[in-house]
Design a protein around this nucleic acid. Structure first.
Lengths: 348, 348
DNA sequence: ATGAAAGCGCTAACAG
DNA sequence: CTGTTAGCGCTTTCAT
């Protein structure tokens, strides 16, 4: 069997020393036609037992693996899903990706991830590259692409996006209720007796951030307490923005008993500033975050926050996309936010 | 020009409503042959100005984008690089990926990332999937693949791997000097007068971890102080392992003035335990980490640690791989570790 | 049940 | 300078 030790001349050694074997090679080795090989590999039709055995033996012996690119070209489907994320280092985006990835296991689809770095031009370019590879679907995790750009993109392949609400035939969006999240956070503080609550906001154009603030305002209204705009300072959803805002807050001379940071990363920055200035959390001031990133549980004190179900968001996105691709996965449950009480907030 | 409003019948609408246009369509539209289109798109040869203009106009008008899969099939190169990571949520792996990604920008290569979750079986399967897509190169970020498996894989396409040392024609490895890193950490503590230094180790089979410990031991030897094995406890490189180890350490009754955690995540766990038990860092005990993950700078107090240049590691890996793929990028500098002094360690 | 042949979209000889 | 043609590796009619 190992008798034909000389390889057919057309076998190539692309960059390694191991020949790359094609279905044609397997067919020759097994003494059948290439169509038979294909049928066996894909289980597309019945094949006589002896041939099947011969082919399977050849496949194993030669270590044949079908070329997915060729198959894709023929089938008109790449089995790859493009993911546009903003920053692969972001703790919460990473968790969404992880959930998405998890849902894809076993489906044959593989994600290819590109980063846009919150830069519209870059995002467009990267998505273009993805589309050049004929992705079967695209998931857009936040970012600065306009709604109409997204709609246009969805004319090529199904799109699912987070952080916006959008209607379209080949597009699905997931937008959690951030207003409600902000409301939950503020209510918790208000319910514990806090009446002067400072806020570190997010990027002014980021709707997730502005909605959280809106919920913060609504909670105040319900409690009949006025929000003092003098103690809301702008952050940028990053740690450093949190330190800047917290410093300004402390320097403005106004008093307050709690601060609601628009996300955990801002809260971490604020926390550090208070540590530096000898302000104890939560004894001197309570601190509340938003997101529940992995590090939140290991701050000292562990951070009270509103949990966004990132992993489940990833799962949900994958399911929505798969559904548009014709894979039926039954009911989809929309994840919701929930208060995570730890130790950075105390009764006022 | 928009006169021919009826599309050629063979145009298909895969899952969107926008026709997918091929080079053939462009050729027809511009009144030239398909090879001319190819030549213009790739800049492969001189083409008469009028035809070039006509083709470019057609491309713009029809919004043509070459099908990379087809090109790959023809060229025998996919322009995709596979990355096997262990956990996309790991703060340090994410940074390596980011560096890698950065180095790839503009090269035409795109990474596709899969996770192995520190599970050999899973790793093999994912790498197989990657190879089915005929990746042009593979980068292996740590993991449980054996050296011989890696060598075998490198017979198909160039491989670059971290966390081990390995020789092979189509394989390059990057292994930082963790022994030296451990030495740096321990020396810093010893130099500040600490004589009883506890250690939270990493996974016992993880060579990075064992080497760090070896460096820790060497530093002690040089200072002529004995390491007390009773105050080294095993962790797992994760936060929770850090809390478990720290609790055991505190409960064992032995005294110590500093703890060297084998990585920052372990240090975070240990830090939380001390916070809980009212032990002040660094006043009561000094704490030293390893890695310098993003969160390290925002612990309270900010964590003194040994920085691993993850971003640069990513860059380096990309360069090595690109070099094997025939792209000359000049000198490669091997990044080294360095002490990052913050506030979690003080003189004893 | 199986083989021959066409063709997915593209590039690269090879002729003109 | 430009068009014709032969595949890249695969799946899938269409005959047999």
């Amino acid at each position: 069997m190992a008798a034909n030790s000389k390889f057919p001349s057309q076998l190539v050694f692309p960059s390694g020393d191991k020949p790359i074997v094609t279905a044609t090679d397997v067919a020759r080795e097994a003494g059948v036609s290439i169509s038979t090989v294909s049928r066996i590999v894909n289980g597309t039709a019945r094949v006589a037992k002896d041939k099947r055995l011969a082919v399977e033996a050849a496949i194993a012996r030669m270590d044949y693996r079908p070329n997915l690119q060729a198959r894709s070209l023929k089938l008109g489907t790449s089995m790859i899903i493009g993911m546009l994320t903003q920053d692969i280092e972001s703790p919460f985006l990473a968790r969404v990706i992880r959930g998405f990835e998890e849902a894809l296991v076993g489906t044959g689809y593989a994600p290819i991830i590109v980063s846009g770095h919150w830069n519209q031009k870059e995002e467009i370019e990267r998505v273009g590259l993805l589309m050049d590879r004929r992705i079967d679907g695209l998931v857009v995790l936040y970012g600065d692409l306009s709604d109409s750009q997204l709609l246009e993109i969805s004319r090529r392949q199904p799109v699912v996006a987070t952080g916006r609400r959008l209607e379209g035939e080949h597009i699905r969006t997931l937008q959690l209720d951030h207003e409600q999240g902000g409301y939950i956070a503020a209510s918790h503080l208000l319910g514990l007796g806090h009446r002067r609550i400072a806020h570190i906001s997010g990027p002014p154009l980021h709707t997730d951030a502005t909605e959280r603030y809106a919920g913060f305002v609504r909670a105040h209204r319900e409690y009949g307490v006025e929000v003092d705009r003098d103690i809301v300072f702008q952050g940028d959803f990053l740690e450093h923005g949190g330190v800047l805002a917290m410093n300004r807050l402390l320097d403005c001379g106004k008093n307050f008993t709690a601060v609601f940071a628009s996300n955990d990363q801002s809260a971490m920055g604020a926390h550090l500033v208070m540590y530096r200035r000898g302000i104890r959390v939560p004894d001197d001031v309570s601190l509340m975050g938003f997101d529940d990133i992995p590090a939140a549980a290991y701050l000292t004190p562990p951070l009270t926050t509103v949990r966004q179900p990132f992993f489940e968001i990833g799962l949900y996105l994958a399911q929505s996309l798969l559904a548009m691709l014709g894979h039926d996965l039954g009911e989809l449950t929309v994840p919701s936010m929930e208060l995570v009480i730890r130790e950075s907030v105390k009764r006022c």
